[in-house]
Design a protein around this nucleic acid. Structure first.
Lengths: 346, 346
DNA sequence: ACGTAGTCAGACAGCGCTGTCAACTACAAT
DNA sequence: ATTGTAGTTGACAGCGCTGTCTGACTACGT
């Protein structure tokens, strides 16, 4: 039906050449306002939509932005997609999603063909792919701009967006301290992940600033998984001498803590406060609901798309642009006043 | 770098015309084996990748498959994408993901432009978009084939894939009955969702076949959300006269049941068995882990992509093809023997 | 009156492929 | 030897746009 309307039809209807129609479509300068209006009217009445393949074949843009990811948390990747698409749609761009097996030997072989046959205008790299050198090499070789979301290493290799993980962890710790907690357990994230260190730092800084000691036996290693959180919590909570609050570096681990608390019959938050990080969907699907830090994931992806669409460039030798977005402390029911308030003091 | 290799280069290197190269690339018949080999060798040494825009402009295929969704469960949509992409990649196709706000007034306006400017070869429709008439109308108007995943209504309007929800619910109920449960609560899903009815039917059939009564006060309405499951569970479990097992129509609601059980200090599974449906990531991120039904989501999406790629057609008047995939009962720790085993019997 | 910018619009040549059609080969059937 | 037929290849014309270049027309100063 409406499939055969081309730029010619619009040109004919508005009484101009196809080139002028093209100019209007691409918001090029040097078109009289009057002419522009006529063309736009024709576009509207014909319900004309330019053909993307033709545009990208003839021109230099592909109208395609890629998102590469590997085995992500589903909630995360969905948010990334929604955020990026929202921004892309405004400009008539589309999103190509490409899952990668970034630990495999053939990453190169997975990436190269797609880079060569769709020549995307830009690529967004999410967790762990954003730290994969092979992927970045391929992108650079093909001259395809990319923006990384919360990269953990090689920070100045590309433009990036992220949030202030340290400050977020600081504020969450502060929240716990304000509730009267003095003895707080902390579960670390995966050691390979860039955010892990920052979150720990935030915790340590907040404790220090409040004049509270950070006892080594209150810091447990985790790996961002439910199971690792569960196991860390068992070590942290089994003893009678236990912290009154546990701050886990992500929600999955916090959920593990809640599971252990349930098993040990520790009431949350009366006996034990639990805090997470990320605000994954799971945070709400538990009882009591988890106090956590909301990452502006969709906004970060939107910002990444925006950088790609407006053209990220930076001077040779200068640091690439990076955009830090605001997080939000989401206080729900899993944190409450310390049970030792006014009691054991000293 | 490798950006400028065209079909001409391949043709020159292998000493044939570009048309013959094109034939080899498209696996067309009538090319001598010897010639084919020479061309393929040239493709390999040049590391040539055909340009998708040019292909789709010149030919009839766009090499693009769309996935439309609206506010999905993140785990669900991720699985769909992975399943579809795996199949698409084999054929050199790419996936365009398009979130829709299918309850908005302007669905038409959201869909029409993308249909017109990327002329996708096919579209996969997932829950709730798969029951949206406006979207289907638009697709049909543009002559774009589409396959629906687990549609709830208008079943014969398009090809579809799905699973046997009734049988799965039947088997889960059977599992509970085999554990000795005779008094089982059931939480219904959202009344608008096609699967809701089928799952209830499976439950009812299994109870009937086992000679067990289905008491109306044991059937509670839910809406697939954690909260609705929580509330239904409160009604089901608050009384002393409570079922020994609860089967919720999806995992989110089952998690709500677990939360209530925790609050009421009912041990799962010793005092209360809980079963879910879907095997969402949340099912594992709880303690005890949830017994549930694994939907072959990725496989369904792969099958849908496959139907699109191989060209779904059916005779006028005939029923469109539908593919039913196998589910899997995932027995974890949330279900166990009935506490009334051998006690109250009659 | 003339030049000189600056503004606006169109002609035209492809982008890198595929579809169509025509041509040529080889070999069997006449 | 002649014709037929299937198998194999290439020439060529676009697909629907954008980039480049050229031309016309306007406005202003001299």
């Amino acid at each position: 039906m409406s499939s055969k309307i081309t730029i010619h039809d619009v040109a004919r209807l508005s009484g101009v050449s196809i080139k002028t129609v093209s100019r209007v479509l691409n918001r090029e300068p040097n078109v009289k306002a009057d002419t522009r209006d006529r063309v736009q009217a024709a576009v509207a009445t014909l319900n004309y939509r330019p053909n993307i393949s033709a545009r990208s074949l003839a021109g230099s843009k592909a109208y395609l932005i890629g998102v590469f990811f590997d085995n992500p948390s589903p909630g995360y990747i969905t948010d990334v997609q929604l955020g990026a698409i929202a921004r892309c749609r405004e400009e008539g761009y589309h999103l190509i999603v490409e899952p990668l097996d970034s630990t495999a030997d053939d990453v190169e072989a997975q990436v190269a063909p797609m880079l060569a046959n769709l020549r995307m205008d830009g690529v967004i790299l999410t967790a762990p792919v954003c730290d994969n050198a092979i992927v970045m090499d391929a992108l650079e070789r093909e001259d395809i701009p990319f923006v990384r979301i919360s990269p953990g290493s090689d920070l100045d290799r590309s433009a990036r967006v992220g949030m202030d993980d340290r400050l977020a962890a600081y504020e969450m710790t502060r929240h716990l301290i304000d509730l009267g907690h003095k003895d707080i357990g902390f579960i670390l994230g995966h050691p390979d992940h860039g955010a892990t260190h920052l979150r720990r730092q935030g915790f340590v800084d907040a404790m220090g600033d409040a004049g509270l000691p950070v006892r080594p036996e209150r810091m447990e290693q985790g790996y961002f998984s439910f199971r690792s959180g569960f196991e860390a919590a068992e070590r942290l909570l089994s003893d009678e001498d236990r912290p009154t609050a546990v701050f886990a570096s992500n929600d999955d681990m916090a959920l593990g803590v809640m599971a252990v608390a349930n098993r040990l019959r520790l009431n949350v938050p009366e006996t034990l406060s639990v805090a997470g990080f990320d605000d994954t969907p799971g945070a709400k699907v538990t009882w009591p609901q988890l106090t956590t830090v909301r990452q502006p994931i969709a906004a970060m992806a939107g910002a990444a798309a925006d950088m790609l669409l407006t053209g990220v460039t930076w001077d040779e030798g200068a640091r690439p642009p990076s955009r830090l977005l605001d997080f939000e402390l989401v206080v729900r029911e899993s944190t409450g006043p310390s049970p030792r308030l006014g009691l054991t003091n000293g």
